[in-house]
Computed example of a mutant assay.
Amino acid sequence: MSRRLLQLSPEYGDTFPVWERTPELNPGPIDPETSGLSEQLIQELINWNAQWEELFLPNLPEQEAERLQWKREGRSLAKRVELELGKEIDVQVTYEP
């Protein structure tokens, strides 16, 4: 099997924003309880998704700085997922569902 591919992507009403994207595996949302991630990282990912709903659904111009910080945090969380799950994992980040 090739490297495992995951996607970090916000979703309406879905609290855990990590998705399986490896072609050989069933694509779709990952169960946080069986993800292999630490409880702390799981909670931070859930919070990241909740922030998306707060920052992007009203899409107010005055929130631009906060949206940029949210995107930077997404890249950082993706790297942490890769570190926790091992060398054979690649995590892509998308900022829209």
Score class of each variant (00 low, 15 high):
52 W>F: 10
39 E>K: 02
53 E>F: 11
18 V>A: 00
8 L>A: 03
58 P>T: 01
29 P>T: 09
45 L>W: 00
46 I>Y: 00
64 E>W: 12
16 F>N: 01
43 Q>G: 06
51 Q>G: 06
43 Q>F: 08
18 V>T: 02
40 Q>I: 05
49 N>A: 02
15 T>D: 14
21 R>Q: 09
31 D>E: 07
29 P>Q: 03
16 F>L: 04
58 P>Q: 06
8 L>Y: 08
56 F>H: 13
60 L>D: 10
25 L>T: 06
64 E>P: 11
14 D>A: 15
13 G>Y: 12
17 P>L: 08
54 E>P: 08
49 N>R: 04
39 E>I: 01
53 E>Q: 14
18 V>I: 15
51 Q>H: 13
50 A>W: 05
56 F>M: 03
54 E>H: 12
30 I>Y: 00
37 L>Q: 02
61 P>D: 09
56 F>Y: 15
30 I>G: 03
46 I>S: 06
22 T>N: 00
37 L>K: 05
3 R>S: 14
48 W>H: 07
10 P>T: 10
68 L>K: 15
36 G>T: 05
55 L>Y: 04
51 Q>R: 13
41 L>W: 00
29 P>L: 13
29 P>Y: 11
21 R>C: 08
62 E>F: 14
56 F>N: 10
65 A>E: 14
19 W>K: 05
56 F>I: 07
17 P>K: 10
69 Q>F: 11
29 P>N: 14
43 Q>N: 12
54 E>G: 08
27 P>D: 07
44 E>R: 07
52 W>R: 01
53 E>H: 13
49 N>V: 01
16 F>C: 00
21 R>E: 08
23 P>H: 00
58 P>H: 03
19 W>Q: 03
16 F>H: 01
5 L>W: 12
58 P>S: 10
20 E>W: 03
36 G>F: 09
9 S>E: 13
62 E>V: 11
63 Q>K: 15
69 Q>M: 12
60 L>S: 11
10 P>E: 02
31 D>Y: 09
52 W>G: 01
66 E>N: 14
6 L>M: 05
69 Q>D: 14
9 S>M: 14
14 D>P: 01
16 F>T: 00
15 T>L: 13
38 S>Y: 01
5 L>H: 13
65 A>G: 13
